[in-house]
Each structure stands twice: as structure tokens, then as C-alpha cells.
Design a protein around this nucleic acid. Sequence first.
RNA 1: GCCGAGGUGGCAGAAUGGUUAAUGCGACGGACUGCAGAUCCGUUUCUUGGGGGUUCGAUUCCCUCCCUCGGCUCCA
Length: 514
Amino acid sequence: MAEGLPTNDAAAGSGPAGAAQAGRKLREVRIYDTLREQVVPLRPLVPPRVGMFVCGLTPYKPSHIGHARSFVFFDVVARFLRYLGYRVFYLQNSTDIDDKIIRQANEEGTDTFHVSERNFQLYLRNMEALGVRSVNLYARCTDYVPEIISQVRGLVDRGFGYAVEGGDVYFEVARFPKFGALSKQRLEAVQAGSRIEVDPRKRSPEDFALWKGAKPGEPWWESPWGQGRPGWHIEDTAITVNVLGPRYDLHGGGAELKFPHHEAEIAQAESATGLSPLASIWMHAGLLNMRGEKMSKSLGNVIPLDETLRQHNPAVLRYFLLSGLYRSPLDYVGAPSLEEAGRSFETLASPYRRLRQLWQDLSHANDLARKGPGLDGAVAERARATEERMVAALAEDFQLREATRELFNWGKEVNTLLGRTEHYSGDALSVLLAPYQFADEVLGFFPLDRTSAGPPASSGAELGPMVEIVLAARQRARSRGDFAEADRLRDELTAAGVVIEDTPKGPKWRPKGS
RNA sequence: GCCGAGGUGGCAGAAUGGUUAAUGCGACGGACUGCAGAUCCGUUUCUUGGGGGUUCGAUUCCCUCCCUCGGCUCCA
């Protein structure tokens, strides 16, 4: 939210957030659960708390825009639940030790910590640029090795895991009949489709590694099975059981993780704790595709997130990533996708920008309390209704597009009102701003206060004096009818990244991309 | 092969067993402007992959065929 804007009710404790403290019933949110294959109400184990875990990334390389889609979406999930008054603890892990990181470190001639930490820090910066700020704890796998070993040992003790020669420990899938329930896969079918050479030490091909014995030159930790490191799946359950408990409310991740990763999580955690279900609701975000195909290194179509954020307004990327149904694939065709999104975003943000400017003008003039024209009661009612419809859309399995549509419609109304007069009172402006503030708080549509399309531009402060001089010259040219000169000066300002708009009250300007 | 998602206007992309099938982008016309931009108003285009069925009525439910994409132990 831009500094100096009217305070949102929720933040002030008199709105929905205050409801929880007052012990009132929280608004019900319905979410599609992959396991049950239907939209179900979120019923927190310990209301109003919501434990939420989302599978994070393996930072062996800089993250790409596909990652951004999931993490931006789950950011909205956490923001929305908090807006409603749920007290969300959002946990995300980072797989900072695994085969790919080891390989990358060897290629670079450095160690795994450097590789994972460098990419993880870059990821955090990228997430910050995208306005993702709802995660309470990023848990690194290597910080939880004792918990991991303890959980593996527990599984071995209870007969779910078995150690083999070489220091590997496997989970015996045959001991967990529900394996496959989440992805609706049957084991026989899975075995038939296996692409991986079966390790002869495993009792069954579908058994997966809980712990891997260290090979020469690899990082290792001491364990009851010798020197080794965690298998891929175990860190998530070791971390969540310790941080969120044996059961929690929401588990999120990309759709491709359903099988085998999330199946393995269920098998591990429920076998280790004896409690079920591990997560009350399993959410899966649709993947981001490149021109209809998955994004993968072998196809050579991975778009680095960092590069994209340097070339485009992060707000536009965020808007684009949130523009479809979260469970469906989203197709990215490169820059044209973001250019179109940028035009849409401009339509969306422009009325907000106008309102915010008016508010700030009043604020600077210390005149917020003045008696300006108020608002028609019907307008105020429509503002409330707009916000309510946005809430309702999100409360029914996060229908982002529905919510956004409301904001477009609201923008049209705002533009019409501002076309009649701009002299509204502070109260009236805050009513008009409310739907935008909701969108900012929950959808994060206006991160870092950047509300127009395009790459970052120079700041208004450093351009200001030059622009004012040129603009004055252009006005003189216009008043003497020398429109050729006036247009030339406008072209120069445009080339310098300044957007000029003539209004009845004289020309206005702003840096492109601000 | 098995599991899953999907085929809607020029493009992106929603929705519902039943008034004119959202919204955005684009295009065209009008208002405004010296011009442009922004904004407003209006217009433009889909009968919802093919076929069959259920129904008073289906884009929405069922069957079938065609096509696309994803998962099947690296992957947000």
C-alpha cells in the first residue's frame, strides 16, 4: 500500500481481522483439495490458526518464471486468509542439498553451500520484487538434518524403512497401501512406466530413498547408517512435523509434485506419526507452459526470473501470473504475453493512480478533512459490493480472474466519476480507494508502488527540473500556435521516458514506469 | 500403456442446465483535444472441437471420436 493512503479497516482491527480476536466466526473459505477431488471448506485444526506448507525450490540454478507462478499464487492464498482474520503460519522449505546441487558445485569447483545459498538469496530478492512477502519461515534442509535422521530412524524402527548395503535407507511402499491416492496412480501402472533403472538393492522398484549413503567427495552427515545425506522427500516431512506438527491445514506445491513427491510425503509422515491426514487440503498450482509446452532445460525454454524482472515491471509479471485459473496451465509466449498484460494492467492501475494522486495532493495540502463533494450513497454501496464480490470470488477456490474483473469494472466507475469532478473530500476518496486497497493487500497488484507498465525508469525527482523547463517551452509554443515545435518537444520528452498528458488543467507528466 | 487437464470470438481467457455466453487486449465509429494521449459512449466477433444421447431447454450432464498439453520416481 502506498504510504499515506487511507488506513484499511482490516489493518485497523475493526474489520475482518478484528473478528478473529473477538472470537467471532471467520468467513468460510472453500478450496479444491486434490486428494478428495472436490472443493471443500477449509476447517482449521486450531482456528483461527492455519498451518500452511508449500514445497519450495531446489536452488541449484537461478529460479525461473514457472517458480514465480506458484509462489506468487500461494502468496495470495496466505494474504487472503490473513485478510479474513486467519492467523496463517506459512512455511516453505529450501532443498539446499541434493544431487543437482552437488553436480552444480562440482562444475563450478565450489561447495554446495555456496551454490544453494547464492541461488536462494537471488530467489528471495526476486520474490521481494514480486511482492511475495507472506512466508513466515524459509526452512533449509541442511538446518534440519538431526530431525531428518530422527524421522528416518523412526520409520526404520517401525518397519516402514529399511537400510541396505552402501548406507542407503529406503521406504517400503508396500507397507503403505494408500500410496498413490493423491495422484490417483496405481502402483502397477507406475512400475510399468518407470523411466529409472531399478536399484537391485531395493525390495521393490517403487521404494524411494529416505537417506542416501555418501559417495566419495560428496557432502555428508553422520547417521546410524554411516555417512550420508537426506533423500529428497524426507526433508519436507521432517520439517513440517517439527514446525507445524504431525497434521496441518494446507499443503501447496506445483502440480508436477503430486507424484511421487507428495505421495512420499504422505507415506512418510503418516507412517512416522500414525496420524492422518497429513494435510487437510492439498492445493496444486497449475504449471506455467512456454507456448504450450512445459518449461524445461532440455527444451531450452527456461526463462530466468531475474532477467524477466529486470526487463519488465514486476507488478505486470505478478498480474500476468495471477491472470488465469490457478489450477490450470498458464501459457507464456514470451515478451508479448507481458506486453499484453502490461496494457491490461495499465487499464487496471490508471484509475487507482489518479485516486492516489488526488489523495496525496489533499494530504500534502493538509486538507483531507475538508468538505469536498461527497459521494452518492449508491456509489459507496457499489464500492462495498465490489469488494464483497472480490472476497466472495477468492473465498470460492481463489477465482482470481473473477476478482480482477470486479476491479476492472470498478475502475470504469472511478474514471467516470473523476471525469465529472476531481474535487472529492478525503472521505469520498477513501471510499473510492477501498477496492484498490483490498486488491493491493490481498492480490498484491501494486507492489513497490509501481503502478504502470514498462521497465524501471528514472525517478521523477531527477527528471523534474528538466521536464518542467521543456514543458514550459512547449506551452509557449502551443500558445503561439507553433504546434510543430510543441510536438517536437513532446517527442523529446517521450524519448526521455516522460509521459505527457494534456488535461483541461494544463499538461501533466510522469516518468514512464512509475 | 496408465493417470490427469483441456479444446469457447482476431488474440488472451471466464461462466452457467434456461433472459442479449464475462472481463481484458485489439479493431472501428463518436465525444473531448490544435494534434496525440488518457477518459467516456457506442459498434465489431464466438451458438462454445466432430458426432450421438438425456432434457421442455446443454456450452454446462452422459457416450463416442478427433486433437492438444501435463504426470508416470530431476522439476514450482
